[in-house]
Every structure is written in C-alpha cells, then in structure tokens.
C-alpha cells in the first residue's frame, strides 16, 4: 500500500511536468497540441538509448546506438531531443492556425508513433526496450520507490520554476497577447511564428525530460506508452484542471491520475476497465467543453 502511494506520487510528479509544459503552449499561447506524448516518447527513447550500453547490457547491439552515458547527461539529451522534435513539428505545423494546426499536430503524433513502432533498428519497434538501468545520480543509486519520489521531486523543483518564470515573463505576456489577438500582437512587432515556436520548443524539451524520468522509472518502454491516447490523456488533464495559470494543471494532473485508481477499487475486470476508463475520458471531454470550457480552475477557454 505504501509503495502504491509512492508510485502515484511519482506519476503525478512526471505528469506535472507534462501538464505545465502543455500549459505554456495551450494556456498561454492558445495553441491546442495533440503531440505532447510524441515529445515525451522522443525523450524517453533518447534517454534510454543514451543510458543503455556498457558491459552487462544484453540489448545494446539490437539498438541504433547505445552510449552508456550517466543519468544526468542522458536526461539532458532527452531534453534536447524533445525540443528538437518540437521545433521540427512547429516549423511545419505553425504555418496553419485553428483546426488544421491541431490536426497537423495530431498527424505528427501518429507519425512519431508509426516510426517508433516500425523502426526496429532504432529501439526494437513493437518489442520495446527492457532493462533500462536505474538512475545513478552523483553516486546515489536509485532503487526504492521512495527514492524515485525524491528524484522526481528534485527534478520537478529544478525544472518547473523555469516554466513558472516563463509564464510571468515578457515572453509569457507576449504569448498571452498572441492568444488574445494574433494580428494585433503582430502589429506591435511580435512575431507569432517565433514566439509560438519557442513555446513549443520549451514544452518539447521539458516533455523530453519527463520522458527520460518515466523511462528510468518503469525500466521498460514500448511505443504504446507514447501514442495518440497518451496525448489525448495529457490534453484531457490540462483541459480538466484548466490552463493559463499555475493551479489549473496540477489540479488536473492529480484528478486524472487518481481517477482511474478510484475505478480500480470498484473491481471491474481488467480488460473492461481500460476501455471504460477511456470512455469516461471521452465523456469528460465532451461535458467539459460544453459546460465548462475553461476547466475546473483555468483562466483560459479554448477558442
């Protein structure tokens, strides 16, 4: 039971990064994106490939490369890769606005998934990668669930303040202006493309870090953890909690992580429960959009 609570705390810590990253793009920039799980996955795979390797690794020769880097370096690599993926996606998708922008991000999400799933030489495709080494941070090997909670907590306290700072900075102000009225903001000399791309890049980099944390926590990754459903989950938790401020995303994260756990205690058969959970998310999205488009505690409603 204790470990179970620690597990939930770890997951909340990881998803908090995703929620706050998405918040920058959606709550401040006003852009709905459905490819955050893609950046998350790119981060997870990069982190894994950078970390595995060395003498005792059995999988190393089945992967595209394996660098046996220390944990902090691998995490940094994950951030760079996530940010890079976000730039690549943004450069193309930001030519659009509205429905087609959202659709383009959805398309990219599916594409990243297809690549991870089919490119066997990269990361064994559908088979996934197991035996990801446990993190060692400056000589401290992290094994126990409570140690993971500490690690995630430390990373969160290092990473999230950057996002909170950005929310309040001139950059955040310019994003909000673009969200309110793009052409008026451009008439003041603010480049929508540049600011949106920057926001995406930051969100991608932080999602990459979240991916690295996730990979080294579960020690096994496969593409199904980073598909469209995952992106939808991230969007749902942000929309549920509300965006455009600091309290919304964390409320959404906590609720959405705990909700399926509550369902678990009802005692439904496993196969059934997974689908039922999705159905609940689906209805939640519909009702949310109808009754409360700004979420439980948000400052911004989609337009």
């Amino acid at each position: 039971m204790e470990n179970y609570v620690l597990h939930l705390l770890t997951m909340i810590g990881i998803y908090a990064i995703l929620a706050y990253s998405m918040n920058l793009v959606t709550g401040f920039g006003g852009l709905l994106v459905f490819c955050l799980a893609g950046f998350y996955g790119v981060g997870a795979y990069t982190h894994t490939l950078l970390q595995v390797g060395g003498a005792e690794s059995r999988l190393a020769d089945e992967l595209l490369f394996s660098a046996a880097c220390p944990f902090p370096v691998a995490l940094l690599g994950a951030a760079l890769a996530g940010g890079g993926a976000a730039i690549a996606i943004g450069v193309v998708a930001l030519r659009f606005r509205g429905d087609f922008f959202v659709f383009a991000t959805l398309g990219f999400q599916m594409m990243l998934y297809t690549v991870l799933y089919n490119w066997n030489e990269l990361g064994r495709g559908a088979f996934g990668i197991y035996g990801i080494p446990r993190p060692v941070v400056f000589g401290w090997e992290i094994n126990q669930p409570w140690e993971y909670v500490v690690l995630v907590g430390v990373v969160d306290t290092m990473v999230l303040p950057f996002l909170f700072l950005l929310y309040r900075s001139p950059f955040g102000l310019s994003l909000k202006a673009l969200r309110d009225n793009e052409r008026a903001a451009e008439s003041l000399g603010i480049s929508a493309f540049r600011q949106h791309l920057s926001a995406l890049m930051v969100a991608g980099a932080f999602s990459g870090i979240a991916g690295g944390l996730y990979a080294s926590y579960v020690t096994y990754i496969d593409p199904t953890s980073f598909g469209l459903n995952e992106s939808i989950f991230i969007v749902s938790l942000l929309l549920l909690g509300g965006s455009g401020n600091i309290r919304g995303p964390i409320i959404g994260t906590v609720v959405m992580i705990l909700l399926p756990e509550a369902l678990r205690f009802v005692g439904l058969p496993d196969s059934f429960a997974a689908n039922l959970r999705e159905i609940i998310y689906g209805f939640a999205l519909i009702l949310l959009m109808y009754w409360r488009p700004r979420g439980l505690a948000g400052d911004f409603s989609l337009r």
């Binding site: 950005l166 001139p170 950059f171 310019s174 920057s198």
Partner: peptide, 12 residues
C-alpha cells in the same frame, strides 16, 4: 518591452 526582450532566452 524591447523586442529582443520578449524571447525565451532573454526572459530566462
């Protein structure tokens, strides 16, 4: 704000 001051880098 100076336009350069609006970038992520300058904001951080």
């Amino acid at each position: 704000h100076e336009h350069e001051g609006l970038s992520v880098w300058a904001s951080l």
